[in-house]
Design a protein around this nucleic acid. Sequence first.
DNA 1: AAATAAATTTAGGCAAACCTAAAAAATTGT
DNA 2: ACAATTTTTTAGGTTTGCCTAAATTTATTT
Lengths: 220, 220
Amino acid sequence: MTLSEEDYIKAIYHLSQIDNKSVATNAIAEQMKTKPSSVTDMVKKLSEKSLVNYKKYQGVSLSEKGRLVALSIIRKHRLWEVFLVDKLNFSWDEVHEVAEQLEHIKSDALIDKLDAHLGFPKVDPHGDPIPTKDGTFKKSIKKLISELPVLSEGVCVGVNDSSASFLKFLDKNKIALGDTFKILDREEFDGSVSISTRSGTIRISEQIASNLYLEISDTE
Amino acid sequence: MTLSEEDYIKAIYHLSQIDNKSVATNAIAEQMKTKPSSVTDMVKKLSEKSLVNYKKYQGVSLSEKGRLVALSIIRKHRLWEVFLVDKLNFSWDEVHEVAEQLEHIKSDALIDKLDAHLGFPKVDPHGDPIPTKDGTFKKSIKKLISELPVLSEGVCVGVNDSSASFLKFLDKNKIALGDTFKILDREEFDGSVSISTRSGTIRISEQIASNLYLEISDTE
DNA sequence: AAATAAATTTAGGCAAACCTAAAAAATTGT
DNA sequence: ACAATTTTTTAGGTTTGCCTAAATTTATTT
């Protein structure tokens, strides 16, 4: 598999997670930052290799074979992220770009040994689950605060927007990954939410709430 | 820099270490497992980027800029080898292939943090020195036993031939990387050599002697 | 020093992965 | 339903890194 093929497979996987339908050419083009015509080229190629199901004008979905390839890439990506954060002291918002490169390294032995070295982690630094070698993994029950009902409780496991200004805001409000939050109240009018944190109760705007992911603990 | 460009730079560097002259097109082609005409193409490209000095029919040498690129790749390669052996428990003869891939990962922060994580190693698992960030490094004083005079003493730091049969031989004779040897005697007739090891004195054939590298300690 | 051999370069092509512009199919609005 | 719009595909072109075959330069022999 070429690097580019792997990137397409991964993109198709992620896009088909959003809703469960087949993925549109345009959506892939946007994700991959290429033109739709390039996507058509590649999709034909992947289809010939039986990695995707494709019928002209009907969108694409991963075949079982393609799904396993995607999960293996995601497994590598997330294991490397754990390595970067746990062993090399990167912060969890710096690791994505490097992991994008590392995920393409081809060596089964390497990934097995890395996995062992890291103590067989179950989730990456953003709280996303790490697929197992055989391509199974527990779907994350990660949701945005803005999508959760009042009285939900969960562990903060990720952000959407990792801009400097947003991270500064989190810092100032003593919000960090791993903290447990409870949603106390939601204001109908503006969607702002009151949450209890380690350091007390704060009110966050809808914009903030739609940028913070919680992993719901009681569903676990 | 593309992956391929980096591989060429590295190949040219290694070939120009053998003797100090400019490197022949054919030699690069053989090393890179491509055809001489492909080498000409690439060399022109590298020349336009001022990474090599090139005049038609006269061979190639690295420019100062090219040399620094080469050393940075070699630094990455060797640091990753240390990681693979020290942290992931690969054996030192299994790491080359994976390190060939890892050396192309682009991130200065990654290499700095990896270096620190490994405790700023000076040599890789084969005993080869790791260039520093600024592109300086102590030339190794690594020699084959067959090339050393009688009474030389040094640490075994590498092999030429890493075939299974040779490694089995080393094991059987309790020869391992890191052991200190002294050359006691050389037989004129067949070039066989008597060396003292941790576990006693053994006699090795010329063939073996020309496959084992010692790092000479007293010259250090 | 000329003839032969070897090394190197040029010329022209190919596949991968991208592009633009135009054509075809699917979807949407009225 | 059918016209307009959007999406997708096709057609033809580009660049990178490789190839073969032929031409050219350098090196070796005698």
